[in-house]
Design a protein around this nucleic acid. Sequence first.
DNA 1: TCTTGACCTTGCAGTAACTTTAAGGTTTAT
DNA 2: ATAAACCTTAAAGTTACTGCAAGGTCAAGA
Lengths: 135, 135
Amino acid sequence: MNISQAAKISGLPAQTVRYYESIGLVSPARMAHNGYRSFSKSDVDRLCFLKQAKTTGFSLEESRDLLALYENADRRSQHVKQLVLDKLSRLDQQIEELMAMRQTLSELAEGCQGDEQPNCHIINQLAEQGGAGHE
Amino acid sequence: MNISQAAKISGLPAQTVRYYESIGLVSPARMAHNGYRSFSKSDVDRLCFLKQAKTTGFSLEESRDLLALYENADRRSQHVKQLVLDKLSRLDQQIEELMAMRQTLSELAEGCQGDEQPNCHIINQLAEQGGAGHE
DNA sequence: TCTTGACCTTGCAGTAACTTTAAGGTTTAT
DNA sequence: ATAAACCTTAAAGTTACTGCAAGGTCAAGA
């Protein structure tokens, strides 16, 4: 099957599939007479796996590791689970950071009149917090 | 004051301060005899403002807009508030995406034995979801 | 047969916000 | 004198693509 079919099935843009090939995440055969990529079922399986890992929040390097595990019959589920738990804790940390930002933004917005006047709580707070008061 | 002082007060790495200068977010004077940057109080104020905006989750382009507002005596707080509300809604969306990932990861981890065996719920799920079952 | 449109190829530039590296000049303290 | 700690620039690397240009190929219709 050619790239547009593989892209459609996996849910990845064709450009992205080419990019994945360029970094060695997939290696489709080539058709001799025109140089078009030819994707086998297992190539498409890899792409689907990658798409799913991406949706789940894994980076491409993490996905590469998962893919190696996917294709390694001697893997230990221990090992896979550890990758997921590590990812989970990084994700929790990231969520906490965003929640902190959300809190700050929400407080800023609440304190601001939002009218025609220049006086603005938001601007004042951004200016006053942090390294303010240095002389 | 020289760059390391300005960096310390603002809480930004010196390299980042140089980068901010290169994209026009700050324009410190230069000392004639050695070419070192010389930061005034208002330069440092800008850096602190930028640091704070960054911590609050604004991109550099958004920060540039906020900085213009910060220095514009004719601003309307309406305008500033709208920027913050827009940011807030993008942030909420981002948090939701991360929570969805968190949920998926957490379910994956729960279903996995995490032992010495190759059979792994996580791998199976990543392989089966998405574009699976194409023939 | 010709043409039109949809497909495929490559390579290169651009994105965000830095970080790292290299190579070298200046200042300060001993 | 010299070493440590500061400063400078320019260029490359990072992540995961996206967009563009120039051109080859293929399938269908007139």
